[in-house]
Amino acid sequence: MGQATAPITAPDIGQEEETRSKELPDRGYLVVCWNDPVNLMDYVTHVFQTVFRWPRAKAQKHMLQVHHSGKSVLVRETFEKAEHYVHQLHSYTLHATMEKDE
């Protein structure tokens, strides 16, 4: 009993919050799918459903955007996830690229 203890110091909350905010992932990378005249519309819809696990209506909306506007921004993600999605879309031979959202 009564042993000497080290003085208690309050945690530096400000510093912790700063660290935490630094650790927030940078979801500033866009995955873009581009139009081409060769991929079948149903195929593109199927790929979006499979890769992003989207419902058919959402996949179709993006497919039509690609078809009519020439491209569609599919997702905004971290670098690693966006790169993963670009690889997935290329495995289905879709023309997908990644860009930094400025």
Partner: peptide
């Protein structure tokens, strides 16, 4: 499906990427 699309897109590239539609 991926394999068939590789052949389809690859053949299209060999044709010079025409917009047939």
């Amino acid at each position: 499906l991926q394999v068939l699309n590789d052949i389809r897109v690859g053949s299209w590239v060999r044709l010079g990427c025409p917009d047939l539609a």
